[in-house]
Design a binder for these strands. Structure first.
Lengths: 109, 109
DNA sequence: AATATTTATCGTAATTTTACGATTAATGCT
DNA sequence: AGCATTAATCGTAAAATTACGATAAATATT
């Protein structure tokens, strides 16, 4: 127990959930915003903007990368990260497609 | 440790993260989709569509409600839930505003 | 009044997440 | 070659999440 039962859900549900989950932390939101604003960012600069330990930021970067929301390449000693606009667009599209108002009755709540 | 350091982040970062986090689970995505399609839904119907225990679904509904993504009212023995379109719109707006491409250099990664 | 139905809550266990410091690996500099 | 810098990884602890069954509370039904 304590494990997400991803296997019993549809592919789209899981894809959407995974992207949302990756965005679902203020530090990762801040990282994405920084990357969006600057388009390119060296790891150390991201660390400097966040009130978190370097190792923690590294962990968040790893998660964003795993979700496909950012990509990173090694540039000598440094690491260059940038946002994956396509993934972000994909997320928005999924949101729009998945949560479209149906033809059902109106809400009474 | 193990706790999210929400206090050190901006209000918008936290708001965006909280909404994303709430969507960040396939069961909750499925619930939202069901609610979006039908616009109104009785709790039992949602439980029937999900391969999860009733108590687990109830927990997910509670989280979606806490995040403001759905609202629910008691209708006799049953509970009527519906999607909060405004919250979903708010989420999309935050996404658009927060992750807008800046005037920086292009990505090289 | 007794029973059934519906859903929220409680208690609990397994797992994941978040955070940090310390260490390692890799490159750059002197 | 030796030292400095940068960032990933490791180890670990605290807390949150996810899931379930059992129970409780509230309304319907007979």
């Amino acid at each position: 127990m304590g494990t997400r039962k991803t296997a019993v859900f549809g592919e789209i549900e899981n894809e959407l959930a995974e992207l949302a989950k990756a965005i679902g932390h203020p530090a990762r939101v801040a990282i994405l915003r920084e990357l969006a604003n600057r388009n390119v960012c060296v790891c150390g600069e991201i660390v400097d903007t966040l009130p978190l330990a370097q190792s923690t930021v590294s962990q968040h970067l790893k998660e964003l990368k795993a979700a496909g929301l950012i990509s990173g390449t090694v540039e000598g000693v440094k690491s260059c990260y940038c946002i994956n606009w396509a993934a972000l667009e994909r997320f928005k599209t999924l949101l729009d497609d998945f949560f479209k108002p149906g033809s059902g009755q109106n809400c009474a709540c």
